[in-house]
Amino acid sequence: MSDSLLNSEQIIHRMREAIGVKNDGLVGEYLGASKQAVYNWKSRGSIPIEYCVKFCVKTGRSLDWLIFGLGDNRVSDEPSVYYADQDYSEVPVYDIEASAGDGSLFDQEVISSYLKFRNDWLAREGLHQKDLVAIRVSGDSMDPTLSDGDTILIDRSRIKPDGVFAIRIGDALRIKRLQKLTDGSLRVSSDNTFYQEEIIRPENLNQVDIVGQCYWRGGRVF
């Protein structure tokens, strides 16, 4: 068994232990995920980081304990107080994947979970809760900057290139590096050199919707 598979099994085991259940499906129910999703986590050896954070917020457990089995397994005797802490703001994680490859379609914009960010960090970074959403990356075209399965924080108030942005072209949601060229065209490129860049001419820019700038990355747990 690989180290990643072993680690995901151990994390789910600690989740069951913490909430006092013996069935993996009940772990998924507790986190708002399907039984199949939990099975997929175990089979591929990774768990989306937002579910680990959500679990720790709900139970008051330490993230170090959950992921690595280190230290005290509790960070608070009153997890509900921690969850309601006014020092934090919640950002919705949408149940859609942004393709860093050929593109994935929007099926529906359903909130699957929430991430919590400290308000003082948001203020230092010049971010505002109302402008923020999080989605998951699908594909490898932004490797090594972004990896398949990463969760990214998007600032919808920042839509002026240059940088890494979430964009919609037709029904496809993509994560790409954008650069505005001197002739008004838009260069759409990948950090993975396997993928060719695209140039969108000024007369076709109305086909592109810049959703927002990719500001923060949360990687997968292996």
Rank of each mutant, 00 (worst) to 15 (best):
G163Y: 14
D143L: 10
N40E: 13
Y195C: 13
T182W: 02
D171R: 08
D102L: 13
L31S: 03
S190C: 11
V133L: 15
V91C: 03
E197K: 10
R14N: 11
D102T: 11
V221S: 09
E17L: 12
S43A: 14
F117Q: 09
V133Q: 06
D107G: 08
F222N: 07
V38E: 00
G20F: 02
G28Q: 07
Q86N: 13
D72A: 03
R74Y: 07
K180I: 08
R220I: 06
V188L: 11
C56A: 12
I49S: 10
I12D: 00
Y83H: 11
Y114M: 13
T193Q: 13
W41D: 01
R118Q: 13
D150T: 05
T182N: 04
L132C: 03
R177N: 11
P79A: 06
S141E: 03
D131G: 04
Y195K: 13
I210Q: 06
E109V: 13
R217D: 07
G25S: 15
V53Y: 14
T59C: 09
V188C: 03
V21I: 14
D155W: 03
F194L: 14
R16V: 01
D191E: 15
G139F: 00
G101P: 04
L173S: 01
D209R: 11
I96A: 12
Q196D: 10
V133N: 01
K42Y: 05
S80Y: 12
L186M: 08
S34W: 07
G126H: 09
E197H: 11
N204Y: 08
G212A: 04
L26W: 09
E97T: 09
S104Y: 11
V208M: 05
G126L: 10
K180P: 02
Y114G: 01
Y114H: 15
R61I: 05
G20V: 02
L178W: 05
L31H: 03
D171F: 08
R187I: 02
V211I: 14
D162N: 15
L132N: 02
K160D: 15
T59W: 04
L127E: 00
N40Y: 11
L5E: 13
A33S: 12
P48D: 12
G163A: 14
Y195G: 12
S8F: 07
W65V: 06
R168A: 14
V188R: 01
C56R: 00
E109T: 11
R124H: 09
V164M: 08
P161R: 04
G45E: 11
S80A: 15
L5Q: 14
S80P: 00
R74H: 14
F222P: 01
L105P: 03
